[in-house]
């Protein structure tokens, strides 16, 4: 059990949400709320499943780590791509024509693994 305490925390916390939701059901509330909160409980349990899967594949505590730092060069173009997508909502869909190529550049950088390496 100790080994899976991290899973238990997430799953248990999701379950606590479920219990509180059940109490709300006793009091009654609009249907939308049950969809919303019910969806969140499901999301949290999915997160718990992800933690479970991860902790079955690897140790609970680490002695050796892998520190990935490839392809961080893609991050800034990606962020500006998303910025343009968001601005397309304000100033019109033509901005997507700029966002698309930028996001493609980001994907290319990510695939090539471009990054800056600190010396």
């Amino acid at each position: 059990m100790k080994r899976h305490l991290s899973v238990l925390v997430v799953a248990g916390w999701g379950l606590l949400n479920g219990v509180l939701l059940a109490v709300l059901a006793v009091y009654g509330e609009s249907a939308m709320v049950f969809w919303l909160w019910g969806g969140v409980v499901v999301l949290l349990e999915l997160a718990a499943v992800a933690v479970l899967a991860s902790s079955r594949l690897g140790p609970d505590q680490h002695v050796r780590y892998r520190v990935p730092d490839r392809a961080a060069g893609a991050v800034v173009p990606a962020a500006f791509g998303f910025l343009l997508v968001a601005l397309a909502f304000v100033y019109g869909a033509w901005l997507l024509a700029l966002a698309g190529p930028l996001l493609l550049v980001a994907v290319a950088l990510a695939v090539r693994g471009t990054t800056a390496r600190e010396e």
Binding site: R64, V67, D69, T115
Partner: peptide
């Protein structure tokens, strides 16, 4: 803890 896979990125001053 160890360490860092080889990345071969462009070297830049920190």
């Amino acid at each position: 803890p160890t360490a860092k896979e080889g990345t071969g990125g462009r070297p830049v001053p920190p």
